[in-house]
Each structure stands twice: as structure tokens, then as C-alpha cells.
């Protein structure tokens, strides 16, 4: 138990780092992902092409590689970034591709009749997207979008390899502890993630029930 007491601060700090990283990266991912989704359904071909290119690139690249390019590649174009902001950017940019995918499948799920009706009453592309399609799309995508964000929380663990002292970074740090203690560390780390993911999962389920629309 001494071990727990000695390292309590360490755990708390790490947990808060993971939480902060998740919240900020989630914000980046949601904003950018929504923008990308709008681009993918827009009438302007280069925008569509750009968004598709973005999604296909990030979807097929390991997050670890994204980290490498953000932390050590960006300085090659004279853009130096700190480790925590770099981690936020890496996780955010990567997750945005999947937020876009989730949203796009949501947009596709809104029946064509709705969009046609919106057009028929004279709404423009922007208006029909904003007033009719996206609000409904957001509801259908609550579960997949929630899952993407929960998956993102676990993906923040990769930041451990890039000098961010989040939960997983405790593992290499405390690995030489003896068997019982290492088990404790692992349990602590897993519980730390679950403290974030399980309530999020519950929240997603609740929101899903509340906003669900019957079709």
C-alpha cells in the first residue's frame, strides 16, 4: 500500500493529463471532422477531393506515424511545436478523419426525401445542411461518434512514446517495480482509462435514447 501512497500524485497528474489531452483533441477532431464532412458533400470538387484525400491519408496511416510527423516532421518546415500541443494536434487530426466518416455515414442515412423537401421549400445548400440534414445526422451519429471519441481516449496512450506524461507513460516508468506493484500499476492505468470511457459510454447511450428519432 506504501507504493500506492507514494505514487498517488503521479497517478493523479497522469490521469489529468490524459483527460486534458482527450478533451482538447476531441474538440479539434469534432470541429475539423465536421468541416471535413461538409466539404465531402459540398458542390465544389476540389473541396471534395481535398477532404477525401485527407480522410484516406489519415485513415490508412498508423497514429504513431502521425505523431512522428507532427513532433519531428513539422520542424522540418520551420514549425516547432511543444509535446503536449503536438499530441493534441496528432490525436485531433487523426480522429478528425474518423469523425468525418461517422458524420458522412450519418448524412447519408438522412433520407433523400428530407434533403429534397428542404430544397423544394427553397433552402440553399448551406441552409439545408445546417437546418435539416446535419441536426438529424448528428442524432443518428451519436453512437458512432461517441464510439470514435471513446476510441480516441484510448488512442491518446500513444502519446506516452512522445514525452507526454499521461497514464500509459507510467508503465515504462514503473516497470521495474516488483510483480505485485506492477500489477497494481496496470490495474491503476486501466481503471484510469475506464473512469473516462465508461461514463462517456453511458452518456452516449443516454443521449442516444433522448435524441433518437424514429424512422
Amino acid at each position: 500500500m506504501d507504493f500506492v501512497r507514494e505514487n498517488a500524485d503521479l497517478f493523479l497528474d497522469a490521469f489529468l493529463t490524459t483527460l486534458g489531452l482527450s478533451l482538447l483533441a476531441g474538440l479539434v477532431a469534432l470541429v475539423l471532422g465536421t468541416l471535413l464532412a461538409a466539404m465531402r458533400v459540398s458542390p465544389i470538387p476540389p473541396l471534395r477531393g481535398l477532404a477525401t484525400f485527407y480522410v484516406e491519408t489519415f485513415r490508412n496511416t498508423p497514429l504513431t506515424v502521425v505523431f512522428f510527423f507532427i513532433i519531428f516532421g513539422l520542424p522540418q518546415i520551420d514549425f516547432v511545436i511543444g509535446f503536449f500541443p503536438g499530441a493534441v494536434l496528432s490525436v485531433g487530426l487523426y480522429t478528425a478523419a474518423f469523425v468525418c466518416e461517422a458524420l458522412r455515414s450519418g448524412i447519408n442515412a438522412v433520407s433523400a426525401g428530407q434533403a429534397e423537401a428542404a430544397r423544394a421549400i427553397g433552402l440553399t445548400f448551406g441552409q439545408s445542411l445546417r437546418e435539416v440534414v446535419l441536426p438529424q445526422a448528428f442524432r443518428t451519429v451519436v453512437p458512432p461518434l461517441g464510439n470514435v471519441l471513446i476510441a480516441m481516449v484510448k488512442n491518446t496512450s500513444i502519446a506516452a512514446g512522445f514525452s507526454v506524461s499521461e497514464l500509459s507513460s507510467l508503465l515504462p516508468r514503473l516497470v521495474n517495480a516488483d510483480a505485485g506493484d506492477l500489477t497494481l500499476v496496470l490495474v491503476g492505468v486501466v481503471v484510469g482509462y475506464m473512469v473516462i470511457t465508461l461514463p462517456s459510454a453511458l452518456a452516449v447511450n443516454r443521449i442516444e435514447r433522448r435524441v433518437a428519432i424514429l424512422r
Partner: peptide, 8 residues
């Protein structure tokens, strides 16, 4: 997304 995967 890999790595994580949804908890729900």
C-alpha cells in the same frame, strides 16, 4: 481507428 475501439 484501431488501438482503442469503442467501449460500448
Amino acid at each position: 481507428m484501431g488501438g482503442g475501439g469503442g467501449a460500448v
